[in-house]
Design a protein around this nucleic acid. Structure first.
Length: 414
RNA sequence: GCGGGUGUAGCUCAGUCGGUUAGAGCGCCAGAUUGUGGCUCUGGAGGCCGUGGGUUCGAUCCCCAUCACUCGCCCCA
C-alpha cells in the first residue's frame, strides 16, 4: 500500500473520474465552439523563457513552483505551469499573427510544484480559451460569457459567483501602484510579514490580504477608481454594461488582483465557497502586453483558464455511463453464437457487455451490477428455432425474439 | 515555503488504560439456486494496524523521523 503510490500531488484518473473529466473537457469544447473558438494543443513543455518573462520574474510560480530541467541536449525546459504563454508562443511560431483575431480552446495537464491540498495538485488539468487580436471590450464580454455558459452547461454556474475588477491600462496601474506603495510604506510597522514582502513584489496583492491588521489599513488605502484614466474607465464601463446586457451576473471586487504580471484591464474569477481555500474555479482577464513580451508583435489578448479537478469536485452527478446490453450464452452452442452476436451488435452501435465465465445466474448478476438495461439470453433450445430470450432487466419481463432481427427488439428498449 | 490534524481490510470506521488468534458494516468470492439478476440466508478470502528507527520482557497503541493525505496561511485553476 505505502510502497506503490503515485508521485506526491499527482493522481490517477480512474474510469469514473476520467469520465467526469472528459465530460467537462467535451462540454468546454462544444460550448466554446459555438463562440468560434477552435481547439489548439501545445506541447506540455517549453523553453523556460516562455514562462519566465510573461508570468513575471518575481511571481511564486516562476520562482519556486516550476518543474524545470535540463534535457540531454542542454536545453532549459519547463513543464507548463499554465496555458496562456504557450498558446501565445504558438501564435507567433505558427505565423497565425496574420489572421487575427484568433480564438483558441485548449485543455490538458499543467504542473506546479506546490504543497498539495484538496483542489490543488502538482499535476492538474485545465481547460481554457484565449482570444487574441481584439482590443475591444466586446472581446472581454464574449470571453466571460463563454466561460459562464460552460459553467452553466456543467451545472456549476449557480454555485459560483463572478467577481470582476479592472487593473486599468499600464499608465493607470503604474499610477495606482505608486500611490499604494507610498501609502503602505508609511505603515511598514503595522503591515504583516507577508504584506511587507508584497510591498516589494506586487503591492496590489496587499489589497487581498486576509490579515486583520492589514485589513484595517486597506480600508483607508487609495482607491483604484481614483487612479484610472479615462480610457481605462471607459473600457471597464463597456465591459460591465455588456455583461449586464447579456444577463451575466457579477459582483465588483475592487481587491481582485490576478497573479501573473501580464494582466491588465479586465480581471475576473468565478469563485465558490464549497472548496475551502481553493475557491477559484475559473479565472482570467486581459493581457495586452503578453505576445509582445514573448518577442512577437503587439497583439492584445483576453482569456481564462479553469481547473478541471475543481470543476469536477463542484459538479455532481455528471456523465452517467451508457447502459450496456448483456449477452448471456447458455451451453456450448450458445457460447459460439454469443461471440458472433456481441460482435454484430457492437458494430451496429450497441454497447455490449459480454461476460466471460459463469452460469446464467452469475452472468445476470454481473449484468445487473454493471447497470445493463437488458440481457439477450442464448439458450440451446431457442437457438435451435432461431430464437433468443430478451430480458428487460428493469421490468423483469422476458420475451422470445428472433435472433436475426434482435436489433429491432433492442432498439425498442432504449 | 510556514503552522495544525489524520494514517487499522478494496471502501467507511471501531478497538487495544502497551499483552499473545485485530473487529464491524458495505463491497468481493462461493453455496442455497448445474437455464434466470435485483431480496434473503450460509460460508469464505482479504491486514508486515503507512514506512523506518527508538523505549520496553513485549509496540498497531508511547517517543522520534519519514512518507502520504487533509485543514489553514502563502499562492493559485
Amino acid at each position: 500500500m505505502a510502497k506503490l503510490q503515485p508521485v506526491r500531488g499527482t493522481h490517477d484518473l480512474l474510469p469514473e473520474e476520467a469520465r467526469r473529466h472528459r465530460h467537462i473537457v467535451e462540454t468546454g469544447l462544444s460550448v466554446s465552439g459555438r463562440y468560434g473558438f477552435g481547439e489548439i494543443e501545445t506541447p506540455i513543455f517549453e523553453f523556460t523563457e516562455v514562462f519566465e518573462r510573461p508570468l513575471g520574474e518575481a511571481t511564486d510560480v516562476v520562482t519556486k513552483e516550476m518543474y524545470t530541467f535540463t534535457d540531454r541536449g542542454g536545453e532549459q525546459l519547463t513543464l507548463r505551469p499554465e496555458g496562456t504563454a504557450s498558446v501565445c508562443r504558438a501564435l507567433i511560431s505558427g505565423g497565425l499573427t496574420q489572421s487575427l483575431p484568433a480564438k483558441f480552446y485548449y485543455q490538458g495537464p499543467m504542473f506546479r510544484y506546490e504543497r498539495p491540498q484538496k483542489g490543488r495538485m502538482r499535476q492538474f488539468h485545465q481547460i481554457g480559451i484565449e482570444l487574441l487580436g481584439a482590443a475591444e471590450p466586446q472581446a472581454d464580454i464574449e470571453v466571460i460569457a463563454c466561460g459562464a455558459d460552460i459553467l452553466d452547461a456543467i451545472g456549476v454556474l449557480d454555485r459560483t459567483t463572478l467577481e470582476l475588477n479592472t487593473l486599468g491600462d499600464t499608465e493607470s496601474r503604474r499610477a495606482y501602484r505608486g500611490a499604494l506603495v507610498e501609502y503602505f510604506s508609511a505603515y511598514r510597522d503595522a503591515l504583516s510579514e507577508d504584506s511587507l514582502r508584497r510591498l516589494e513584489v506586487n503591492p496590489l496583492r496587499i489589497l487581498d490580504s486576509k490579515d486583520e491588521g492589514d485589513r484595517r489599513l486597506i480600508k483607508d488605502a487609495p482607491s483604484f477608481d481614483d487612479h484610472l484614466n479615462a480610457a481605462s474607465k471607459d473600457f471597464f464601463g463597456a465591459v460591465t454594461q455588456g455583461l449586464d446586457a447579456l444577463g451575466v451576473r457579477f459582483v465588483r471586487n475592487p481587491h481582485l488582483v490576478r497573479g501573473f504580471d501580464y494582466y491588465c484591464h479586465t480581471a475576473f474569477e468565478f469563485v465558490t465557497d464549497a472548496l475551502g481555500a481553493q475557491g477559484t474555479v475559473m479565472a482570467g482577464g486581459r493581457y495586452d502586453g503578453l505576445v509582445e513580451t514573448l518577442g512577437g508583435p503587439a497583439i492584445p489578448g483576453v482569456g481564462w483558464a479553469a481547473g478541471i479537478e475543481r470543476l469536477s469536485l463542484l459538479a455532481e452527478g455528471i456523465a452517467e455511463p451508457v447502459r450496456p446490453i448483456a449477452i448471456v450464452p447458455v451451453g456450448p452452442n450458445g457460447e459460439a453464437e454469443a461471440l458472433k452476436l456481441s460482435h454484430r451488435l457492437r458494430r451496429a452501435g450497441f454497447t455490449i457487455e459480454h461476460g466471460y465465465t459463469g452460469n446464467l445466474g452469475k452472468r445476470l448478476k454481473r449484468a445487473t451490477k454493471l447497470g445493463a438495461r437488458a440481457a439477450v439470453i442464448l439458450g440451446e433450445d431457442e437457438l435451435a428455432r432461431g430464437m433468443v430470450q430478451l430480458r428487460d432487466l428493469d421490468a423483469g419481463a422476458q420475451d422470445e425474439a428472433p435472433l436475426d432481427r434482435i436489433e429491432e427488439s433492442l432498439a425498442r428498449l432504449r
